[in-house]
Design a protein around this nucleic acid. Sequence first.
DNA 1: ATGGCTATTTATAACTC
DNA 2: TGAGTTATAAATAGCCA
Lengths: 137, 137
Amino acid sequence: MVRRKIDIKLIANKSYRHTTFTKRRKGLMNKTEEFCKVSDSKGIVISFSDAGNCFCLGHPDVGSVLNNYLGDSSSAIATEAEKIIGDALESGKWVEAVKGLRLDGLDRVYVELENATRKLEALAAAKEETQSYGRRD
Amino acid sequence: MVRRKIDIKLIANKSYRHTTFTKRRKGLMNKTEEFCKVSDSKGIVISFSDAGNCFCLGHPDVGSVLNNYLGDSSSAIATEAEKIIGDALESGKWVEAVKGLRLDGLDRVYVELENATRKLEALAAAKEETQSYGRRD
DNA sequence: ATGGCTATTTATAACTC
DNA sequence: TGAGTTATAAATAGCCA
């Protein structure tokens, strides 16, 4: 964009690419902060370099904005989840239903919870058989 | 920044502020996309207007980058959660431990799961007493 | 509210050390 | 490598239709 205009395409030279990444990243972060300040808005930028390094900036801060964003989904999830869990405690299939919710990123957590559920059920079944399952505290 | 430089502070006039919000937002989104393309990186911008409207852009797309970001935490959470859940199935206090993990945004989900756990425990306790709790399928 | 239109300010590609 | 310089391109504040 300056001494000479460049095409907006992958910069082949790796070291030049990294320089550009660093420079433009700074510019983007500054611009984001300015943008938020002048317009009384909230915002975040998250960037992963080609090497997978993560850089981020948020106004007023990353966590609150991200929670805001996730919150829209989370509160919906929470509402749905409550219903699903309530229903599913009888039907026994809440995990599958919950996994159909919006935030794919939570799947790994749900997988763990599914495992946990199975273990709980297994324990409950074992308890039912043996009557020897003690209290947890 | 142009016909006249402006201070980077809240623009008092509401309609001018909104105009600036719209213009700068477009600029930020474009710049983000260019930035990602030239540097072979992944990125997202999420913006909430003063009115709370949400605008976002991601390269290659919002979901994958956000999952990437959450994934770093999620996979750590998954690993920790597996251990915690494994241990806690005996100790019975996994929810508290899980809630200490990094992603505050997930708290609402955990709250639901905590509720679910309580219900499961209540049901298990009831079953223990009555022996009448049937299988779930 | 939009959608241009400049006059300027910013951002930055190429360069240098 | 990074850090700084500078000539240009891009973004945009203030206007106007």
